[in-house]
Design a protein around this nucleic acid. Structure first.
Lengths: 261, 261
DNA sequence: GAGTGGTCTAGACCACCGT
DNA sequence: CGGTGGTCTAGACCACTCA
């Protein structure tokens, strides 16, 4: 509404001028978020080409019927995602390259599912034991404190991909074996009200020993990717300590990084 | 103003109350940034303990002589770093766990130097060649376009750690071999005015072939970590394509992740 | 119901970039 | 020099949490 005379405003025309944005003020979704989503969609479907300038923030806010800080908040969120770049004195531009998601605290199950790999899981072990020293230290528990230990094999297309060993403080959650076989551990934890916050992770490699080779259908000595991870919730409690091994022939870690100056 | 009677304000006392913050309005450093830095320092030296509440933003802004949005901007930057957690209706808390830096677009040289490993480099190759098909595709160049190819061995304490093969568009930079031996490639690129922005990276593993084994002082068949990376500058140009292999016995990737909901 | 963070407004001045 | 983003202010109302 009220967007009639859009002749020569200031500066140069922006590719944004021809786009429609619809904001619903009665929606519980924040206005800056509505705008950010529509802007992101426009970039991803190519309506805004790489290198295009957005046009200045003042005009933009007038056109959208928003205040400039609100428009800035939306733009900033896409800058943080790596989709836009701001340059003082120049303007805000769409980044050229295809930017995928930055590395997230991801679940192997979700990753595989997203990739259309139809993952399945076999639970080999699900019991409570006293924590070994290294596990107790990683989880910040007293040595011998009770932990749930999970051992799982993950398959795609019937082929083993990973052997996963996870330790959780027993007080936190007693995962149901049937559910573990039909979904990922992180989903189970989230649905138990645990808010994952951060993780410290180490990725390395080593040769498979005989037992690992048998489980993963590899030869002894084959290269394996290893991952160790301690995950914390938003109160800073350690909620998981994991040691995973992946068949290097069938799995690799793949992610996007952004520079944070 | 009109902020005289500052007795029993609202809510509970905060651990922040006993801290001094000094803001310099004549400094070119933004106020929100000054406050964020001092707050971060207070957290890191333990003056604010994990779990401590910051006290509400209104009082804080009055005490600091800043507006609430400015205070929020400072707090938000620490939330983004993972040092603080906000909870609606509760307050802003210091996170319990030790949070290290999230994964950055890092330079092996800088990583090793930070770890006190006194890295050295031997440049095995530094020349311009027509781009092979896979390299041209990764860099978005025409096949046969000229690229600089670098092959380097990286040592710590006299032991080889990594064999690194990097391709750069030849027009971008002709790296000086002597400088490459005394610093990292990323520093060279930055000092040439290239602003690194993002990278797409794949980490995997495989067994060493005879040549790699000889270079890295490993046995043939030893597990190696592999990394492929394409790096982009802030205009979206691909500025580097790298294929590195690391001795798994001497190197692993280690980083902190934050959940981005 | 009191207190918190989440969102939003309508201005203002400054620092930087290009011409 | 004009135009851009970067910073900052002083308010406002809402949504959520917890007692």
């Amino acid at each position: 509404m009220a967007t009639t005379g859009d002749r020569s405003r200031s500066g140069t025309a922006s590719a944004l001028d021809s786009l429609d944005f619809s904001l619903d003020r009665s929606s519980p979704v924040p206005l800056y978020y509505q705008f950010a989503q529509q802007l992101e969609a426009a970039i991803e479907r190519g309506a805004l080409a790489p290198g295009d300038l957005l046009g200045n923030e003042i005009d933009l806010s007038v056109r959208l019927g928003l205040s400039r800080p609100t428009v800035r908040q939306a733009i900033q969120s896409l800058v943080d995602k790596g989709l836009l770049v701001r340059r003082r004195g120049v303007g805000t531009q769409v980044v050229h390259s295809r930017v995928r998601r930055p590395l997230e605290l991801s679940s192997l199950y979700d990753d595989l599912e997203t990739a259309g790999q139809s993952p399945t899981t076999r639970v080999l072990r699900n019991e409570r034991v006293p924590a070994p020293a290294d596990v107790a230290s990683a989880l910040g528990l007293a040595e011998g404190g009770e932990v749930t230990v999970l051992e799982r094999l993950r398959f795609t297309h019937g082929q083993p991909v990973a052997f996963m060993c996870n330790y959780l403080p027993a007080a936190l959650l007693q995962p149901d074996t049937a559910r573990l076989e039909s979904t990922g551990l992180y989903r189970l934890m989230r649905s138990a009200g645990i808010t994952l916050h951060s993780a410290r992770q180490t990725i390395g490699a080593r040769a498979a020993d005989a037992e690992e080779a048998a489980l993963l259908d590899e030869k002894e000595g084959a290269a394996l990717l290893t991952m160790q991870r301690t995950t914390y919730d938003d109160t800073g409690r350690a909620v998981e300590y994991a040691r995973h091994v992946y068949r290097a022939s069938r799995y690799s870690f793949d992610f996007q990084l952004l520079v944070r100056p």
